[in-house]
Nucleic acid binder design. Structure first.
Lengths: 236, 236
DNA sequence: CGCCGTTTGTGAGCCGCGCCACAGCGCGCT
DNA sequence: AGCGCGCTGTGGCGCGGCTCACAAACGGCG
């Protein structure tokens, strides 16, 4: 009974997923039964840099941060994956070890697809392969841009851009402005951009005083998108 | 007569290329006749960030630098493509504008493959698609690592790593050590890592005094790989 | 050969920002 | 209520590395 329900859920999830929705019902069902669900508590490590990895995950519920650490313990958050998102494709596709850690930011359910299940479908369906290729290209553009920002821009611009990106990914329009529907400590915000927690604090307060943003119950609300754009593009 | 010779050359080039050598002779020949050659003088711009791009290039002769510029004129060199290498795949694959500039570092010949020619082959031959996917994964790993280095490491470590990478790509073993078979100004070296020319100069001289490297006729020779590794991995 | 644009070598000064120290604060847990 | 922990707010110090400024070497070219 529960087994049936779970399978039903998996079918549904795949049918709604941007990558897999275009498959034949037949194929999708085969994938759905083969895929396994996995649950992770808030803060749990899903995989770790260097692990052998031959699976990728789709986020069904919750959020996952992709990050890595320096030798002296600093953290860099490469991206945060929302419900509906995908991560871990790279190791699946090229068979090399994982390049970063994946950590559940909240109670999280994942659908895990193994290389052995996915590869046949990928060779049989070139359109799916192209979709994967697009995802990779997008990631590449994204990390290149991150690199450029890091090398070219000062802390304020970098952080403003990070807020804009967060706005795109997690923003809910509200009466006061764009509300970021995710709770991140100043520490975490700093790790997104490679800036110290203290600097984040100062910028946040400065911008709040200037009316660019507002803090509400620990959530950030972007009040003046234009001003934020100006900071993001200022100088270089 | 010349036309025949050029076609012959193109066939040969494709047959020797790591991506395309596994195709049927038939298919490869079709690609070869469709592909066009293009020549670029030293310093010529091949394409520019933001250009629409639906082709990728294989380097037949010479070298190409992939770079981008900040608003205030700083340059970042993302990578240097050797003879036999490939670039411009991303725009071809996802149809978006080019993400960076491509500039010929020397007299350079390219083989240009258009999207319209390549796509049919890609859908027909899943193994080729996988090869492309591997290339993308590799690029992604490379830029991620570049980003990590930039955020986690100080200038000396970063620059040491850059020298090691250059050694892998352009190193010719010689009596004195690993000789970098490429001439780059200190300016260019700086752009590879995001460090000012002056800093590069100081590091270069310091390491030369320490016997880690040696300058010979404008070329860098790595004499003590171990010492360079130590600098690359020191602290964070 | 002499001129000029480019590359190299080096020192002084400055500044952004990381690191440290510490003080309030909220929140969960017992 | 009381304790402790992780988060926030702020100020000061120090340092890495960028900027600026200039001198010297090094081609390439008329």
């Amino acid at each position: 009974m529960t087994a049936i329900r779970i399978n039903f859920d998996k079918d549904l999830v795949l049918a709604g997923h941007f990558l897999l929705k275009h498959l034949e019902r037949e194929e999708r069902h085969r994938l759905a039964t083969a895929a396994r669900l996995s649950h992770h508590a808030r803060g749990a490590m899903i995989f770790q840099k260097g692990d052998p990895g031959d699976s990728m995950m789709a986020v069904i519920r919750g959020r996952v941060k992709i990050c890595c650490h320096s030798m002296d313990g600093k953290e860099l958050v490469l991206s945060i994956i929302n419900k509906g998102g995908l991560f871990g494709e790279i190791a699946l596709l090229d068979g090399e070890p994982r390049t970063a850690d994946a950590v559940a930011l909240e109670e999280t359910d994942l659908l895990v697809l193994d290389r052995s299940q996915l590869m046949p479908v990928l060779t049989a369906r070139p359109d799916l392969a192209f979709r994967i290729i697009s995802v990779l290209c997008q990631r590449l553009r994204q990390t290149s841009e991150h690199l450029e920002d890091t090398l070219f821009l000062e802390a304020p611009s970098r952080f403003a851009r990070a807020l804009k990106r967060l706005g795109d990914a997690f923003g809910k329009p509200g009466p006061e402005g764009l509300r970021l529907d995710i709770k991140l400590s100043q520490q975490q915000l700093g790790c997104l951009v490679g800036v110290s927690r203290e600097s984040v604090n100062k910028l946040l307060n400065e911008w709040q005083r200037a009316g660019v943003i507002e803090m509400d119950a620990g959530y950030i609300v972007i009040r003046d998108t234009g001003a934020l754009d100006d900071i993001a593009d200022s100088c270089g």
